[in-house]
Design a protein around this nucleic acid. Sequence first.
DNA 1: TGTTAATTCGCACATAATGCAGATCAGCAT
DNA 2: ATGCTGATCTGCATTATGTGCGAATTAACA
Lengths: 142, 142
Amino acid sequence: MVLDVRTPVELTSDFRSRGLKVTPQRQLLFRLLYGNMTHPTAEALFAQASELMPGISLRTVYQTLNDLAALGELQVLHPSSGSTRFDPNVDDHHHARCRTCGELHDVYVDRVQDLAMRGPVGFVAERANIVFDGVCADCQVG
Amino acid sequence: MVLDVRTPVELTSDFRSRGLKVTPQRQLLFRLLYGNMTHPTAEALFAQASELMPGISLRTVYQTLNDLAALGELQVLHPSSGSTRFDPNVDDHHHARCRTCGELHDVYVDRVQDLAMRGPVGFVAERANIVFDGVCADCQVG
DNA sequence: TGTTAATTCGCACATAATGCAGATCAGCAT
DNA sequence: ATGCTGATCTGCATTATGTGCGAATTAACA
């Protein structure tokens, strides 16, 4: 199982080949996202980016995240509480959410295709997104 | 398979037994939710309610929906686009979302417990929430 | 080096939902 | 039936998250 993530260099040529420009702001965000397993919010990335590049705007962070999502290089997560989170791991994977601390974790699930769904007639499912709710190791008591 | 939904009468005694009062506004919302398969937004319920009870406030709709959710009589859904939706069916079920029209549909899935999840060490999963993305019958072309 | 369209930034704006407080009312005891 | 008391309702202000817009800037290419 190899993480399906693009390096900053790959993202750079990806952007250029589609007529998008590669600015210092974007390169910084590519780097901050690479290998990032924290499912950061836009605000969190903005805070990190601001330390390395004072003056970068939150608007630009959103813009770049939206561009990456449009290219399919970012999974966009809408957790049951809190703001949108971004996952640079575009592998076929799912998530576990701790109901105590709220943290999201990547989860791999086998044979999701075998799930028998009884539902709306004629609905053609292309993908299943699974979120496991529970309690993470750190939040277990006793 | 029987829908696990409370009648307005059941919700009424449910509320009373917990020290919550049952007002005309709440009774109206109980009725509007009973058997409602549309996964309405708060605004949609407010619009419906306003026709039957002019002057009811959006704030009250949110308040009642939050109370119902706290009692476990309402599933709260956070779709990938648009605002929060409420599902009075508290059966163990899942959802299918059409990426064309955005509609949500109830889906029943067997043997969800059999899913083998490889994920964070020590995470205790209590429930899996599955959302199938795809295209509904009405939105199929050709 | 010049050209041009994409990008950045900052502000205004939009949307969804909650906080607050005075007026009102449901539920219970009498 | 009446009164009491805390829960509720309403309207407004406020928060939180994210987008629209336009002038200034800049990446990419000739």
